[in-house]
Structure formats: C-alpha cells, structure tokens
C-alpha cells in the first residue's frame, strides 16, 4: 500500500499521461483503494492535465469504478434474467440476512459491500456472483452461507484476495 498521490504518479508513469491512460489509471486506484475518492479523481485530473469534471464524468459512467467508499470485499450478485429465474432473490436474502446489510450498503466494520449487477456471463451456471474478482456460480442459500463463512473466518488475517 502506497499513498494515493504516489500511486497515481506511479500509474501515470506506467501507462503514460495521455487521455487514453485514464481508464487503466482509474482501475489501478480502485484496485488498491476499493473506490475513487474525490481527492483521487482531482489528483488524477492534475496528473493527466484534464478538467476534474472530465475525470468524474468518465469514472461515474462505469459500474466497476466505484466512487463511494466500498468494503474490502465487494459482493456483486447478478440480477439479469437467467440468474433471476434460477433463484437469485433467495441467495440475495441469505446474504442480507447473514451480513445484516441491504443492497447498496456496507457492513459497519467495512468488510463487505453488497451490490447487484447486470449479466456476468455465467447464465449456464446461474445464479452467479462476484466477490471482488472471484466468481461463484450455481449458488444456493446454503452454498452462499458457506462461501461467506470462509470470508468471515479469514477477515481477521492479513491476506487480501483482491488481485
């Protein structure tokens, strides 16, 4: 972990300071920070010599570039048609019940955030979800409780599954 300013500088050095480097830089910041703070967006704008509004406009367009503070583990459950048909709501209820949060919320300890997302491309193994960038498929309420228990048990440790 490096300070955001240093991180932005490193990323700009790696990808270049052209406008076409904007997405990789935004993604690089989200990878470490889990979201884009206003401060980070302003500093990125400065590094690339762009208006801050342009950076904000671009960042907020993409659903995988969070601009609100997110938990360490971001759960994205697919809500598109096949997952919905195959029991997404029951899985979602199991998650909400276990973590005591609703869609769009983060647990008070900052460990988990829960979001719904559009088609993940695992319709043949529905319902599916992502936790950060790990995919879980063929979910049932029982299975999702087991998966989350795994995360809850390791959350005390220093490991971080975010790639």
């Amino acid at each position: 972990m490096v300070a955001v300013l240093e991180l932005i500088d490193n990323l700009a050095g790696q990808y270049g300071r052209d406008r076409s480097s904007l997405l990789p830089i935004l993604q690089g910041v989200v990878k470490q920070e889990n979201y884009l703070s206003e401060y980070a967006m302003i500093e990125i704008a400065r590094a690339l010599n762009l208006p801050a509004a342009e950076v904000y406009g671009t960042a907020t367009f993409y659903s995988f570039l969070e601009y609100k503070k997110m938990g360490k583990y971001l759960i994205r459950i697919c809500k598109t048609i096949t997952c919905s048909m195959k029991g997404k709501n029951q899985v979602l209820m199991a998650i909400e019940d276990m973590l005591k949060i609703k869609v769009g919320e983060t647990t008070p300890d900052g460990m988990f955030s829960l979001l719904q997302t559009n088609c993940l491309g695992f319709c043949h193994m529905a319902p599916a979800m992502l936790i950060n960038f790990d995919v879980y498929t063929d979910l049932t309420p029982e299975k999702v409780r087991e998966i989350l228990s795994g995360y809850l048990n390791k959350k005390g440790g220093a490991d971080d599954t975010r790639i």
Binding site: D18, L23, P24, F64, L65, N118
Partner: peptide, 23 residues
C-alpha cells in the same frame, strides 16, 4: 485493455471512446 462494467462498450464506437479514456 480492461473494460469497467458497461454493456454499451460492446458497441464498436463506444468501445473506442472507452479506450480513449472517455465515457
């Protein structure tokens, strides 16, 4: 080049815009 969760970027000209660092 990694996308960032936008269905519309599968449209070819939207994809170019995205690669150019825009919406």
């Amino acid at each position: 080049f990694m996308g960032a969760g936008a269905y519309i970027c599968g449209e070819e000209t939207a994809l170019f815009e995205s690669m150019e660092g825009k919406r």
